[in-house]
Simulated assay, not measured.
Amino acid sequence: MSTPLDWTLEVVVLPVSDLDRAIAFYADQVGFVLDHRTTNEHMDVAQLTPRGSGCSIVVGTLPAQQAMAPGSLRGLQLVVADAEAARAELVGRGVACDEIQVIDPRDGGTFFGFADPDGNTWAVQQIRARAETPLIPLDHRGRFGD
């Protein structure tokens, strides 16, 4: 149960130059879920969420996005239980990925990276414990949530 003092990071605003290209990259190549696209006289934005994550990215024409140069975010971090499998999936979908690096042999010390078409960069960290203990537990129907 959450309390009034719990703070959760739920959205990261990501600056991109072409919304359709960003949606295609993150949804079709990286595998994020397209939660919604909202287009009206004030904005054209999309929210996408990595599978298993409680935090989404928002791309589009919000004022916060227009205040940042496309491709200016560096080192956003994703966590997976198996870096080799995750890298292979991305490479198979046409994403150029760095080689896997083991910085520390303990769990959490294995990484690889990739960039989106604008140059925003992502680090992917392997934490094997996520396979058995996800941050967002599955319910009895096998879906994320309570």
Results as ranks from 00 to 15, higher is better:
residue 95 V to S: 08
residue 40 N to S: 09
residue 61 T to W: 02
residue 75 G to K: 10
residue 60 G to N: 03
residue 141 R to Y: 11
residue 65 Q to D: 10
residue 146 D to T: 12
residue 12 V to I: 15
residue 46 A to G: 06
residue 82 D to V: 05
residue 39 T to Y: 01
residue 123 A to G: 11
residue 8 T to F: 14
residue 63 P to R: 04
residue 7 W to D: 08
residue 114 F to H: 07
residue 76 L to P: 08
residue 135 L to P: 03
residue 35 D to Q: 13
residue 89 E to T: 12
residue 63 P to I: 03
residue 78 L to G: 06
residue 116 D to G: 08
residue 13 V to I: 08
residue 74 R to C: 09
residue 95 V to A: 07
residue 30 V to E: 01
residue 66 Q to I: 02
residue 124 V to M: 09
residue 98 D to A: 15
residue 111 F to L: 15
residue 73 L to M: 14
residue 68 M to A: 11
residue 133 T to K: 13
residue 26 Y to L: 04
residue 78 L to V: 05
residue 99 E to D: 14
residue 16 V to K: 02
residue 55 C to M: 10
residue 127 I to E: 13
residue 103 I to G: 10
residue 88 A to L: 09
residue 144 F to M: 08
residue 4 P to W: 07
residue 95 V to L: 09
residue 34 L to K: 14
residue 86 A to R: 11
residue 52 G to R: 09
residue 12 V to Q: 02
residue 1 M to Q: 14
residue 85 A to L: 12
residue 112 F to P: 09
residue 69 A to D: 11
residue 14 L to I: 01
residue 82 D to K: 07
residue 77 Q to S: 15
residue 88 A to Q: 15
residue 35 D to C: 09
residue 142 G to H: 05
residue 87 R to C: 09
residue 39 T to S: 12
residue 61 T to S: 15
residue 35 D to W: 00
residue 101 Q to F: 10
residue 123 A to R: 13
residue 49 T to L: 08
residue 128 R to A: 15
residue 92 G to T: 03
residue 55 C to E: 02
residue 121 T to N: 07
residue 10 E to P: 00
residue 72 S to P: 13
residue 144 F to P: 01
residue 130 R to I: 14
residue 107 D to R: 10
residue 115 A to W: 00
residue 143 R to F: 13
residue 19 L to P: 05
residue 137 P to D: 02
residue 129 A to C: 05
residue 17 S to W: 01
residue 55 C to W: 00
residue 89 E to S: 12
residue 97 C to M: 07
residue 44 D to S: 13
residue 53 S to I: 06
residue 62 L to Y: 08
residue 9 L to W: 02
residue 35 D to H: 07
residue 35 D to F: 00
residue 73 L to N: 05
residue 89 E to H: 11
residue 96 A to S: 14
residue 46 A to R: 02
residue 56 S to H: 03
residue 4 P to D: 11
residue 7 W to G: 12
residue 57 I to R: 01
residue 70 P to Y: 04
residue 62 L to N: 01
residue 29 Q to H: 11
residue 88 A to S: 14
residue 17 S to Q: 09
residue 102 V to H: 05
residue 69 A to Y: 00
residue 17 S to M: 03
residue 116 D to E: 04
residue 132 E to V: 03
residue 2 S to G: 14
residue 99 E to N: 10
residue 7 W to S: 12
residue 32 F to W: 06
residue 84 E to M: 11
residue 31 G to N: 03
residue 53 S to M: 07
residue 55 C to H: 00
residue 133 T to L: 13
residue 105 P to W: 09
residue 82 D to C: 07
residue 21 R to I: 03
residue 121 T to V: 07
residue 14 L to E: 00
residue 17 S to I: 00
residue 7 W to T: 13
residue 52 G to H: 06
residue 118 D to Q: 05
residue 119 G to W: 01
residue 18 D to L: 04
residue 117 P to S: 08
residue 20 D to F: 02
residue 48 L to M: 13
residue 146 D to C: 12
residue 71 G to R: 08
